[in-house]
């Protein structure tokens, strides 16, 4: 066990070109209240605000949560929806791990022995963009029963130019709903398209039955609702800006 507390560079939030860089030891509290994050990528602040309870957010960090890789964690869906990347550092040097390759199983990541997660990089969305994070929880502060993070942009013709859908608690790891994204990207978004995407996203999941948060069948239904709500909210927000 190694204490990283004294490495101040791990606690910084910086803007570099079209990216936001968030140090792995930045607390959820700092993220939810960061003006820079709220202005540049508000989805990240919204997700932070949904984590656990105030004491957990005072202590928890984005890097700690991503490295812990709980399949029901909140940061996974956000990381995937924004197609972020993780910067891992070791005595051998640095490497970037794309969010699509970061989670390798339950509580497992692509980080290798001797590597620490230094920071997470997110591209700042451009144009008319909207976002939403919908999480169904059994009680206040619980891990998700099902959750969906959506980031969406529209081009000048009102067609979807970017869509990221990240899902939590419905597989052995956080997953990106790639097929659902394909139903939406490049199109004028309608209620039908949103329903189709929610259906498709639900089929991409592989939830497990559990005694506390419900059956696999229940979670498949719940994730459909999460995707539908998140897509609708994100689209309305983007449309309002375009």
């Amino acid at each position: 066990m190694i204490d990283l507390r004294q490495i101040s560079s791990l606690k910084k939030i910086t803007e570099k070109g079209s990216y936001l860089l968030i140090g792995s030891m930045v607390s959820d509290r700092k993220i939810e209240s960061s003006r820079l994050i709220k202005e540049k990528i508000p989805l990240i602040a919204a997700v932070a605000n949904n984590i656990g309870d105030p004491q957990v957010r005072n202590r928890g960090t984005i890097g700690g949560s991503l490295s812990h890789a709980d399949p029901s964690g909140d940061w996974g869906p956000c990381f995937l929806a924004l197609r972020g990347s993780a910067v891992a550092v070791s005595v051998k040097g640095k490497r970037e791990i794309n969010s699509d390759h970061f989670f390798t199983g339950p509580f497992s990541t692509a980080l290798k022995e001797g590597e620490i997660l230094e920071k997470v990089m997110f591209q700042i969305p451009s144009g008319a963009s909207g976002y939403s994070y919908i999480k169904i929880e059994r009680k206040a502060g619980d891990f998700a029963t099902a959750s969906a993070a959506v980031q969406l942009s529209l081009d000048k013709q009102g067609r979807c130019s970017y869509i990221g859908i990240g899902l939590g608690a419905v597989s052995d790891r956080s997953i990106r709903a790639v097929k659902a994204e394909k139903k939406v990207v490049g199109k004028q978004i309608t209620d039908d398209i949103i329903s189709e995407a929610a259906e498709s996203g639900s089929q991409e999941t592989d939830p497990y039955d559990d005694m506390i948060r419900g059956s696999a069948e229940f979670k498949r239904e719940m994730i459909k609702i999460c995707i539908k709500k998140a897509l609708t909210e994100a689209y309305k927000m983007a449309e309002g800006l375009s």
Binding site: D3, R5, D53, Q55, V56, N58, R59
Partner: peptide, 25 residues
């Protein structure tokens, strides 16, 4: 296990659940 909050203390002014922090930290 960080659920109930009865062990909440302030560390440098921040409220945290002391059952989920090591003393050495």
């Amino acid at each position: 296990s960080s659920n109930c909050g009865a062990c909440t203390v302030l560390i440098d002014g921040d409220s945290v659940k002391s059952c989920t922090v090591f003393a050495v930290q």
